[in-house]
């Protein structure tokens, strides 16, 4: 099925969200999300990758309507078309957001095992969050939760446990359980599988994929693990210094990336059996309080030319569903003979 046959469930337009702080009278502004536009279809799984501190969490916080000071939406819109009606989260009231939370829109925060209330048993937390949206009580509710946890390879005893009695990966699965038990229309997950071994990780990803298929829901998730993107995402988007620099169908992003940063990301994947040192990216990550002029990647880009230092490259369409923001995208070439799908440029 082509993407076009389905309606957009989420539309993000010109989104800018900054952390605006005041330290002892000194204004400081971190431009964490700086002009992102993208759409996500119903039933689509969209993976987001990018450098550490490039603004991924900040971006999906806004998508998840979890915008708290000092983070402020400065420009742009984020609009969902849920089954029970549309909602524009940057202007929605608290009550409107509460209305869609869990049942329509759920959010698994980064490091979210820490959001579990330490003095509450897991079973209590499930009741608090899921009982009302599921509309079940007593044994029926408990049975639903237990069978859901089993799909995450968690025994029913975890309902009686306090968070500190569970391992890191068990807590992570509990939060995934919370976010998926109500089968929401839109699931947002920030590094949801960092604490899982690869066997359980695969099972958890399958569960997310199954729920997504059953409900025809959409999923947006952030991870540094490119092999997770490779195996679950329909499309992948790359964020660099607060901007979307490339997005496209998963296969193309791995085999024919059209942005040098994407090519670098794909080529830097370490593999078992490999003991050679991978080239790290030269230079430091850009300072989001004072990002570089022109293309923000230019100080570190092996293909940079004068134009890159002055003019911001627009996100242009290079293939069906494939967009990139690079003046020289035609020169970005997969490395021939590399053990990797795509290496750094020509």
């Amino acid at each position: 099925m082509t993407r076009d046959s389905k309606p957009d469930l989420l539309k993000v337009e010109g989104l800018k969200a900054y952390y605006q702080m005041n330290y002892y009278g000194v204004e400081r502004e971190v431009r964490a999300v700086d002009g992102i536009s993208m759409n996500i279809k119903r039933g689509e799984v969209y993976g987001i990758a990018g450098e550490s501190s490039s603004g991924k969490t900040s971006f999906i916080k806004v998508l998840a309507a979890a915008i708290r000071p000092p983070l402020k939406v400065v420009e742009g819109t984020v609009k969902y078309e849920f089954k029970n009606g549309p909602i524009e989260v940057t202007t929605a009231s608290k009550a409107q957001v509460e209305d869609v939370r869990w049942k329509h829109l759920s959010y698994i925060m980064q490091g979210s095992m820490s959001v579990l209330n330490p003095v509450r048993r897991i079973g209590r937390t499930f009741k608090d969050f899921a009982q009302r949206p599921l509309g079940l009580t007593g044994a029926a509710f408990e049975a639903r939760v237990v069978s859901h946890l089993a799909r995450l390879k968690l025994p029913p005893e975890v309902l009686k446990a306090y968070p500190h009695e569970l391992s890191g990966g068990m807590r992570q699965r509990v939060t995934i359980g919370l976010a998926t038990v109500c089968h929401p229309e839109f699931i947002i997950a920030d590094e949801p599988t960092t604490a899982l071994d690869v066997v359980v990780q695969k099972e958890v990803l399958s569960l997310i994929r199954d729920i997504q298929k059953e409900m025809d829901s959409s999923v947006v998730f952030v991870t540094h693990d490119m092999s997770v993107h490779a195996n679950i995402a329909d499309r992948v988007g790359i964020i660099y210094a607060g901007r979307l620099v490339e997005e496209g169908p998963t296969r193309q992003m791995f085999f024919t990336p059209r942005h040098p940063y994407t090519a670098h990301l794909v080529a830097s994947l370490p593999r078992i059996g490999d003991t050679t040192q991978r080239p790290a990216l030269e230079g430091r990550p850009p300072n989001l309080a004072d990002p570089p002029q022109g293309c923000r990647f230019h100080p570190r880009c092996p293909l940079a030319v004068d134009k890159c230092r002055q003019e911001v490259p627009p996100l242009e369409t290079v293939d069906v569903d494939h967009r990139t923001a690079c003046w020289r995208w035609q020169d970005v070439k997969p490395l021939v003979g590399s053990a990797h799908p795509a290496g750094v440029m020509a």
């Binding site: 066997v199 490779a230 679950i232 296969r251 085999f255 994947l269």
Partner: peptide
């Protein structure tokens, strides 16, 4: 053995392979 076999690969990127 299971652990090693479960490592996700990027060779089939886009094919949605999650079976064990």
């Amino acid at each position: 053995k299971l652990l090693k076999a479960s490592v996700l690969s990027t060779d089939d990127a886009g094919a949605g392979k999650l079976a064990t």
